[in-house]
Amino acid sequence: MSRASDSPADSQSAGTRLSRVIVLGVLLAAAWLLWSGYFKPLILMFGAFSCAIVLITAYRMHLFDSDVFELRFISRLFRFWAWLGNEVVRSSLEVTRIVLNPKLPIKPTVVEIDSHCEHPVDLTILGNSITLTPGTLTLSIDNRRFTVHALTENGARDIAGGEMDRRVRALRSG
């Protein structure tokens, strides 16, 4: 497998890549120990073997070329989740009010927005965040152009405002 050429922001030394491998490895080992609960040598060997396979697969998928497995990113991720959780609660209550309203006051709207994110990881996070928020749904992602289905015009306006796009972009580069 030849190494695909990455975007300039992603090219970095072997040292940072090794630290990412270690972060993922520690996460995997912790997960294994939590779920197995056995500490016999044979079982531990199985665990080490599984973790090694996952790490090798992740390496061949070029997963370590992006900064997803860095503690800095993970700490930022938690702040993003807090904001997203707030957003989800707000829009859940709105959708609940619509569903329980006998008149069902929906106004399905399709909006198209151009995201400022470029990296596939950012695009995935943005698309999933939009879908995760009740009331908005990503229909298709075509080369940074998002087609979003919104249940109400309010939700469509929120998406068109681009706040989420800004926050997702700040996740990795801010």
Binding site: V88, I106, P108, L132, T133, P134, L139
Partner: peptide, 12 residues
């Protein structure tokens, strides 16, 4: 599509 909005309330 509107049904999917409702389903996402349960999922989240």
């Amino acid at each position: 599509y509107t049904r999917m909005h409702a389903a996402s309330v349960t999922d989240t």
